[in-house]
């Protein structure tokens, strides 16, 4: 499922004292099956942007094509878009509401009017994609699960709609290191298996650098940089100047370089940092 965003602008509180241009002529293309990371500080327009992709917000001007269909057109029905583009909000576990895990995940598919066996199949698949054991959790109250498990159930509820594009807004916020890793591994595995388009919004530069095929950097409602993680983080000074961080491995290499060591600073992962440090120690 391809996404083409053409020159969209969104203004909050138009003609009011607190008028803010949240999106300022944004154009982006996302190919089918791509894993895209979006970074930007709070208020840079990330959340406003992703809410346009499934029709929750409409732009003041500009076009958004999902698989060639312009979803800004009035005749396009919102449920049709939302079935194709699933959005997982921040802290999605706050949206759990049913008595059992099964009912919670089945809620969306049931509203599509699917037959019972298809609904069961989808709940089963969604739970297995998020790494939960169907038999173990299906009859449990979602509120009896751990924080990381609750979040996975909430994500499963969106996956059960079989969206071709899955947007995740800070899916690991507030989780402990183990829960954090579990959610990331789950997203990686799902992307590999389903080959769906994934858009990940995160403040964790290490995660974004590791997972994304391409990164979109937003600042003041505009897309200011886009490219592979390597290309984007090459602009390290600029990224820091707009209030964002760098992957920790890169920070370490930059500090070593400053001290006159011959190391590459365009590395993104701990594995790469380890290799470089080993080389450095061996060349002593």
């Amino acid at each position: 499922m391809s996404i083409k965003v053409e020159n969209i602008t969104h203004i909050y509180n138009e003609q009011m004292p607190y008028e803010t241009t949240a999106l300022d002529h944004v154009s982006v293309e996302i190919e089918s099956g791509e894993f895209v990371g979006i970074i930007g500080h709070t208020g840079s327009g990330k959340s406003t942007f992703i809410q346009h992709l499934n029709g929750l917000l409409k732009p003041k001007s500009g076009k958004i094509y999902i698989n060639g269909i312009d979803i800004t057109e009035k005749k396009v029905k919102a449920p049709e878009i939302r079935q194709k583009v699933g959005l997982v909000f921040q802290y999605p576990e706050y949206q759990l509401f049913e008595e059992t895990v099964f009912k919670d995940i089945a809620f969306g598919p049931s509203n599509l009017g699917l037959p019972q066996n298809e609904i069961e199949q989808r709940v089963y698949e969604a739970l297995s994609l998020v790494g939960l054991d169907y038999r173990e959790v299906t009859d449990k109250s979602p509120f009896d699960l751990s924080g990381g498990q609750k979040r996975r159930v909430a994500i499963a509820g969106v996956i059960a709609m079989k969206p071709e594009v899955l947007i995740l807004d800070e899916p690991t916020a507030g989780l402990d290191p183990k829960g954090h890793k579990e959610i990331l591994d789950m997203i990686k595995k799902m992307h590999k298996k389903e080959k769906n388009t994934i858009i990940l919004v995160s403040h964790n530069m290490g995660d974004i650098a590791e997972l994304s095929d391409r990164i979109i950097v937003m600042e003041k409602g505009k897309v200011v940089l886009t490219g592979s993680p390597k290309e984007v983080f090459k602009n390290a000074d600029y990224i820091e100047s707009i209030g964002l961080g760098l992957p920790p491995a890169m920070i370490l290499m930059r500090m070593l370089k400053q001290r006159g060591k011959h190391v590459y600073t365009d590395i993104l992962t701990i594995d790469q940092a380890e290799k470089q440090i080993l080389n450095l120690l061996r060349s002593k």
Binding site: K178, G206, E274, I277, L278
Partner: peptide, 20 residues
């Protein structure tokens, strides 16, 4: 117990496992 260590501690741990 499900926790991590800061990245520097992680790298030091890996280097130590390589005999450094």
């Amino acid at each position: 117990i499900g926790l991590e260590v800061p990245i520097v501690t992680e790298i030091a741990f890996r280097l130590r496992n390589k005999g450094i």
